[in-house]
Design a protein around this nucleic acid. Sequence first.
DNA 1: ACCAGCTCCTGCTTGC
DNA 2: TGCAAGCAGGAGCTGG
Length: 291
Amino acid sequence: MPELPEVETVCRGLSPFLIDQKIETFALRRPNLRFPFPVDFAGRVQGARITHIGRRAKYILKYLDNDLVWMTHLGMSGRYTVLPDTQSQQTNTPGAFYHQPDTQIGKHDHLEAGFGNGVRLIYTDPRRFGYMDLIAAEKLWDSPHFAQMGLEPLGNAFDAASLYAALATRATPIKNALLDQRIVAGLGNIYVCEALYRSGISPRRKAKNISRQKIEQLVPNIRIVLEAAIAAGGSSLRDFAGAQGSAGYFQHQFDVYGREGETCSTPNCNAIIKRIVQAGRSSFYCPKCQR
DNA sequence: ACCAGCTCCTGCTTGC
DNA sequence: TGCAAGCAGGAGCTGG
């Protein structure tokens, strides 16, 4: 599920259940996801209280009162599910997911934590591309995950001047450059395709050859696409479909992503959306609107 | 330094 | 209906 808007949706969905709650039980059902779990993960987390849940790029950051940060990257198929202590407390908060009360442990439920308020938190990840780490709070931004990371696209520092400068030396196609987390942190395949469409930029164009004027359009379009997706509760693709009371609906607002062969949505354009493969990923674009 | 390609893993969809 | 191939939202590593 995870690009920036989906991760933001998860953070917002988890917060009301987990903030100020003590982690009373913590069970790992396998030694690793994509990477091994941190050493003595359960021992260092158990007994701590979550003080705050934040996000950087596509990383979920649970700040603990023992000065550690429990970091989660959802990879491609990671998901958090909340089970309230009683059914009556169930809500339809986007980004929080509920099993039926009689649900058994699933084959891909790799971690379960129990909280002081009775809430149970389950991490499920069929592909196991996700990963977790425990990092001392004061060293968080110097850790390998974040040290090289680019600008936060919804942050104040992300502007046309900085993006133009970051792209000026890049010979790679703009599509690939925007997926590079060292340039902009948090964009993924969907929202890059959508932002380039709205900006009239071909995904094949070399990053360094894009005019300053086009970058001036691209920056606000990246924000607009991400903010609209967050407002819609993220996008629900395959892994999300059918999740009760939790599915985002931004996928209905895609202009180009997944629409190969369909007509361009720009009025009077009538061109057919194309799909090409760049760096092993599908790019969708309108060959007439995007140059 | 930069960049394309490969890789981890499972499951759903597509085409024969 | 069965089976194999192709594809999926990410990103670290390798080798050119």
